[in-house]
């Protein structure tokens, strides 16, 4: 069969198999890149509560954590650009948030409930415009030995009273 095809297509046969190899190589490269990049760049996305219960095991890897900003705790040293504040545990589950009356409600309830777990955060950089009381902070960084979460990246969302389905967001980092 190969003989017939070869004489039919002539040089094209070699070209075709080379082509298939090319296609295969690209597809393999894409899969390889996706798999390895996922492994090296994956970050656990935790709530404050989960972060605290993870304890030691959370120390050595990049983690994403989200919580409600407690306004009174915001301290900013404009000289060193050290920004410190505390975030309060909010549930991660969409349905749970929905049942509780939306994101704005959940954030509000979290900061007014002293029994919710809290964690202190340190971020070095310009003070983000959207940082304020009851904003939702999504931080990327590592848990320090002293129990302070050191964030390299800080994403903030401020759900407004009317358009709760469109939290405004801006990335800083």
């Amino acid at each position: 069969m190969g003989d017939i095809e070869r004489s039919d297509v002539g040089a094209g046969f070699g070209g075709r198999s080379k082509l298939l190899i090319g296609v295969f190589l690209i597809v393999a490269a894409v899969i390889y890149l996706i798999v390895t990049s996922t492994q090296s760049a994956a970050q656990y996305y935790l709530t404050v509560e989960e972060l605290l219960t993870k304890g030691e095991s959370a120390l050595d890897r990049d983690i994403k954590v989200s919580g409600a900003v407690e306004g009174d705790t915001i301290e900013y040293d404009a000289k060193s650009l050290e920004l410190r504040f505390t975030i309060v545990n909010v549930p991660a589950d969409l349905d749970e948030i929905e049942r509780a009356g939306g994101l704005a409600q959940v954030l509000h309830r979290a900061v007014t409930d002293p029994s919710e777990p809290r964690v202190d955060v340190l971020y070095v950089g310009p003070m983000p415009d959207l940082l304020r009381h009851e904003a939702q902070a999504i931080l990327t960084g590592r848990m320090g030995m002293d129990g302070v979460f050191v964030a390299d990246e800080l994403l903030l969302k401020c759900p407004t009273r009317y358009e709760e389905e469109i939290p405004l967001q801006v990335e800083e980092g």
């Binding site: 490269a29 894409v30 890149l33 996706i34 390895t36 990049s37 996922t38 090296s40 760049a41 994956a42 970050q43 656990y44 996305y45 935790l46 994403k64 991660a92 990327t140 990246e153």
Partner: peptide
Amino acid sequence: QKVTVGPPFYERANSPL
């Protein structure tokens, strides 16, 4: 467990492509 990927993922995987 929710695991996310950030800009490093996209940059690493997309640059060769």
